[in-house]
Amino acid sequence: MLRVLAVDDEAPALGELLYLLRADPRVRSAEGAGDATEALRRIGRALESGAAAGDGADGIDGADGIDVVFLDIHMPGLGGLDLARLLGGFARPPLIVFVTAHEGFAVQAFDLEAVDYVLKPVRRERLAEAVRRVHELVHATALAPAPEQVPVELGGVTRFVSVDAIAYVEAHGDYARLHTDHGSHLVRIPLSALEERWADRGFVRIHRSHLVALARIDELRLDGGATSVRVGDAELAVSRRHARHLRDLLMRRAP
């Protein structure tokens, strides 16, 4: 079960969030903090108690006592994004879920590898989904890397798409369109940034306009001097400058 810290400078919002969290059967304990300074103090106490007692019997990782921080963004003094950056520097950082009334910080949440991004007013069902995500990550096998999530906007609601679900990415200026088996999503992230970020996740540049998950390539086609790949139902051109490197990668992957 999860050990939770909720941080919000507005007492009514913090009280409602704690009420909903404590009602979730996956939450073992939920404490509240009214600002970032108090949050750091509580996490420091958790670290001290964890060091004295050792890891819990359930073997849950985190800040030795705090598995996840549900964090408001706009707070006086140290803001939520700044606190998340500080926590990211811990040897064993807690997971982060942002809970905010502002939609415009999803990209920053992506950069900080937040598990989820919940908009206020908080709905019980939406919060339960965020808790489910955290619960799965905390109780996953320690050696398994956590799947990276990309925030996308769907009808005014922010959702997170797993990088593992993305087959290929198409450039749209300063934006990129993520193509999955169940549709596509436009995000404000340049293709060049995703190429660098996902190189170790098996994504390879095949054209100035396309980044492809190597494992999702079904066919490599050579037609005269032109090269293309089939990814699901899509056929994508491979530029000459990328063709040789791509063929080498596919040959190494072959059994």
Rank of each mutant, 00 (worst) to 15 (best):
R230C: 11
S162H: 09
A63R: 05
L71S: 08
A39Y: 13
Q149S: 07
A146I: 10
H135F: 12
V169D: 03
R123Q: 15
P25D: 06
E148I: 04
G15F: 08
H135E: 09
R132G: 14
H210L: 08
A57R: 11
G202M: 10
I43A: 12
L214I: 02
R159H: 06
P145E: 15
E136K: 14
R22E: 14
D55F: 13
R85V: 01
A6K: 05
H207W: 15
G224R: 07
H74N: 08
L137A: 13
R132F: 01
R123D: 15
G183E: 12
I73T: 11
L249F: 10
Y19E: 10
L236H: 15
H139D: 01
R241N: 10
S192V: 09
L81M: 15
L112Q: 07
D116N: 05
H210T: 05
L2Y: 04
R26M: 02
I96W: 07
I206V: 15
A36V: 09
M1K: 01
A226G: 09
D58P: 06
A114V: 02
R28Q: 10
L154E: 14
V231P: 07
R241Q: 13
F203E: 11
A144I: 03
V169I: 15
A142L: 10
L87Q: 00
V161P: 04
I66S: 01
S192K: 10
G88S: 05
A11P: 10
H185K: 02
T37W: 02
E195N: 01
P76T: 09
L154K: 07
E129F: 02
A101E: 02
R41C: 13
P76Q: 06
R3D: 14
R253I: 08
D248T: 10
V150R: 08
D64P: 00
G104Q: 13
P93F: 03
A176W: 09
A165G: 00
L5M: 04
S239D: 03
G44Y: 04
L236I: 15
R253D: 12
F98M: 01
H102N: 13
V4L: 06
P93D: 06
